[in-house]
Computed example of a mutant assay.
Amino acid sequence: MTDPRHAQPRTPPTDVPYLRQVKSYVLRAGRTTTAQAKAYEQYGPRLLLPFDKERPFDARAAFGRDAPLVLEIGFGMGGATAHIASVRPEDNFLCCEVHEPGVGALLKLAGDGGLDNIRIVRHDAVEVLDHMLGEASLDGVHIFFPDPWHKTKHHKRRLIQGPFVNRLARKLKPGGYLHLATDWQPYAEQMLEVLRAEPLLHNTVSDEHGGYAPKPDYRPLTKFENRGLKLGHGVWDLVWRTAPKTP
């Protein structure tokens, strides 16, 4: 989950290819702590996966089992991701984040917590989606609190746009789900508009409820969400699915 209040640096780092396209992340400053660095050394060899554009992702080889596969795009410091993985041990979670301290934090949470259903790719999720994941390969996708790019002139940088949602929908298996969450109402409204325009997806709730879903039990409240709720700010969840497989 990317904290939307961090600004994007004016120049990208040299080790991340800069493409003129929407990315799944906002580059943020931050130092890796000693504990996070130790987690890289201790748990990285088992839980970190390389970005490989030459061959499809092999979930069975990566996790050592066959299980439903959920892609998480942008997990911030990993607290919610670790919680979800702990309450859904029957599912595998492939998690993408470029923020080094965040990756270190999730490595520590997963390693210390004995969570073997998490694997992490420290790379732009858009490229992971395009190069590593085949069509109908995912059972679910989580994108929680992506950067809302508040200014109108920056709306084109928002991740949730028609072409990207179509790509996500094509990666989902029949009956697979896409779960979005945001605490910025104008972005929630855009998300809903984009989802309604995607013919491969249908809403799990009726328009009588405004099109937004109740927060699923597996998604915990983040510290930023709790702070916002105390200030009277809203949070909007959207859960859409592909059509189930016909007999």
Results as ranks from 00 to 15, higher is better:
Asp130His: 10
Phe144Ile: 15
Val141Ala: 08
Phe145Trp: 12
Phe144Asn: 10
Leu138Asn: 05
His131Gly: 00
Pro146Thr: 04
Ile143Ser: 09
Phe144Cys: 07
Trp149Val: 07
Ile143Phe: 03
Arg119Phe: 04
His123Gln: 14
Val141Arg: 04
Glu135Ser: 13
Val141Leu: 14
Arg119Lys: 14
Val126Gln: 00
Leu129Ala: 11
Val121Thr: 02
Thr152Glu: 08
Gly134Gln: 13
Ser137Asn: 10
Phe145Asp: 00
Leu129Thr: 02
Ser137Asp: 07
Ser137Cys: 11
His142Phe: 15
Thr152Gln: 13
Phe145Tyr: 15
Gly140Gln: 01
Asp139Pro: 02
Pro148Ala: 11
Phe145Arg: 09
His150Met: 12
Val126Ala: 03
Phe144Thr: 05
His123Ser: 11
Ala125Cys: 08
His155Trp: 13
Pro146Met: 06
Met132Thr: 05
Ile118Lys: 04
Thr152Cys: 00
Trp149Ala: 06
Glu127Asp: 14
Lys151Met: 13
Pro146Ala: 09
Leu133Arg: 01
Asp124Leu: 05
His131Thr: 06
Gly140Glu: 05
Lys151His: 10
Gly140Ile: 07
Ala136Ser: 14
Trp149Pro: 07
Ala136Gln: 15
Phe144Glu: 06
Pro146Asn: 10
Lys153Ile: 12
Asp124Ile: 07
Asp130Glu: 14
Lys153Pro: 00
His154Val: 11
Glu127Val: 00
Arg122Trp: 00
Asp147Lys: 05
His154Ile: 07
Val126His: 04
Val128Pro: 03
Val126Met: 13
Ala136Thr: 08
Val141Ile: 15
Asp130Phe: 04
Arg119Asn: 02
His142Lys: 08
Pro148Gly: 13
His142Val: 03
Arg122Leu: 01
His155Tyr: 12
Asp130Val: 06
Val121Trp: 01
Asp124Met: 06
Val128Asp: 01
Phe145Gly: 04
Asp124Thr: 03
His142Arg: 14
